[in-house]
Each structure stands twice: as C-alpha cells, then as structure tokens.
Computed example of a mutant assay.
Amino acid sequence: MTLTGLSKDRSGGVNAAVVTVMNRTNATASYAVKVEFLDPSGHSVDSTVVGSRDVGPGASGSAIAYTPKDPDAALVAKVVQAQRY
C-alpha cells in the first residue's frame, strides 16, 4: 500500500492523498483504508475511509482520500488502518 500526496491545485484546494493498494493474493479482493490527516504538531485534524473494490489478483486499485478541514494548513496524510475483504 502506498500513500502519495496530491497537490492542492489538483485536489480543488483541499488536502488530499492518493491511496494505492496492491492485491498480492490469488483471488479478487476489496480494500477499505482509513486515513488520518495530521497537523504539523502531529494532532489528528480529520479522518476518512476510502476503498478499492474488486481488485484482481496481481492488480492495483486506488482512491483519493481528502479532507475539507483546514485547507490553508499543510496536513500530512497517514494510513491508520486497512482491511482486505
């Protein structure tokens, strides 16, 4: 799983990150990922859950996690939980 920041000019002016999951199993799977957005002092400002459905074996899927809160701050996205189902 990777988390890549998305520039504000590409996200409509809000803090956002692309979550990419790789299905390393032999069966199609879906994924739910909880992402927290942290302020410069490390405090959680917001969290969201994104998902990728029906990712084939050996394939990857992606989703964009974003927060409308505190758009003027440079928040850092962090994966705090992930579930394959």
Rank of each mutant, 00 (worst) to 15 (best):
L3I: 05
T4V: 07
S7N: 12
D9N: 13
R10Q: 15
R10S: 14
S11F: 02
S11K: 02
S11H: 04
G12Q: 12
V14H: 09
V14L: 04
A17S: 11
V19C: 03
V19H: 03
T20M: 08
V21F: 06
N23S: 11
R24M: 02
T25N: 05
T25L: 04
A27T: 13
T28L: 00
T28H: 01
A29D: 08
Y31W: 09
Y31T: 09
V33C: 07
K34V: 10
K34R: 14
V35Q: 01
E36G: 15
L38W: 02
L38Y: 01
D39I: 05
D39Q: 06
D39K: 13
P40T: 03
S41K: 11
G42K: 12
S44P: 06
V45C: 06
D46Y: 05
S47M: 08
T48L: 07
T48E: 11
V50I: 06
V50K: 08
G51H: 07
S52F: 06
R53H: 09
R53M: 07
D54K: 12
V55H: 02
V55F: 01
G56A: 15
G56Q: 14
P57M: 04
P57E: 00
G58S: 03
G58V: 00
A59G: 11
S60P: 00
S60C: 03
G61C: 08
A63K: 07
A63W: 01
I64A: 09
I64H: 05
I64T: 14
I64S: 04
A65V: 04
A65S: 06
Y66H: 09
Y66C: 06
T67N: 09
P68A: 14
P68K: 09
K69F: 13
D70M: 14
D70G: 10
A73V: 12
A73G: 05
A73D: 11
A74T: 13
A74H: 13
L75T: 05
V76W: 02
V76I: 13
A77R: 00
V79S: 12
V79R: 11
V80F: 04
Q81K: 15
A82K: 08
A82P: 01
Q83E: 13
Q83N: 14
Q83C: 08
R84H: 10
R84N: 06
R84Q: 14
Y85G: 14
Y85E: 07
